[in-house]
Design a protein around this nucleic acid. Structure first.
Lengths: 111, 111
DNA sequence: GCCATACTACGACAGCTATCGTACAAGGGT
DNA sequence: ACCCTTGTACGATAGCTGTCGTAGTATGGC
């Protein structure tokens, strides 16, 4: 009987650290998630087809959230995720777009 | 009796991966190194005052080199390091400048 | 009330990482 | 030849990371 059991901790904008964001972005699975969200806006965790188990997916989303890269809210049984584009751009102008563009380009280059 | 004992392995431009670069940049010590090199050009390993031991410094420079972020050459007893700005810009346009600017801004913000 | 869907929690585990100290090697100057 | 400076190699260690499976919780529909 927890009063608000479905609330998720997000770092405040002022608590977001570049090194944590870069670390969160340094994994191929998480880069794929970020690129997906950049292209498609808000999505549920299961909307992205990742090559890892559900537990691992949960783990990667948590890493992204705790680094301040994404925001997650519960909507029914689903958990919707979206990029914190505005916060990231205010702190690190251009970083997110640069990384997304670079990863898309790398995938195109390697395919 | 190694013929060329003082040669260092660098990844070819085509072998550089975004996730490895981001991982290399996700450590405060290495970010400090990269910002220093971005501001000052080529430097020896010992020209930067880092808060870690010499062994650890060697480790961090190797991580940066193996990810393709810096190039290192021996010059006498010194080992000079410089950013692979051209390679990185060709692969991931704007990334390096964005990260350097962001880290400098973060340090200013937190000081 | 019951079940399906969507996600989480926990424990496990192999592998990597940052850190250090000590001992060593290469090059340059005297 | 000797030493100083500069950086490397190696081993150790504590902690983090990515991965999984299994078991569990919350929500919504029937």
């Amino acid at each position: 009987m927890t009063p608000q059991p479905r609330t998720l901790d997000h770092p405040d904008r002022s608590e977001i650290r570049l090194e944590d964001v870069l670390h969160a972005l340094s994994d191929p699975v998480r880069l794929q998630v970020v690129c997906f969200l950049a292209a498609g806006g808000e999505s549920s965790c299961s909307a992205i087809d990742l090559a890892v188990s559900k537990s691992t997916t949960t783990h990667h989303f948590r890493v992204l959230r705790e680094a301040g890269v994404i925001r997650q809210v519960y909507r029914g049984t689903a958990k919707m995720s979206s990029l914190r584009h505005e916060d990231l751009d205010a702190l690190f102008p251009g970083l997110l777009d640069t990384v997304v563009t670079a990863y898309d380009a790398q995938r195109a280059r390697l395919s």
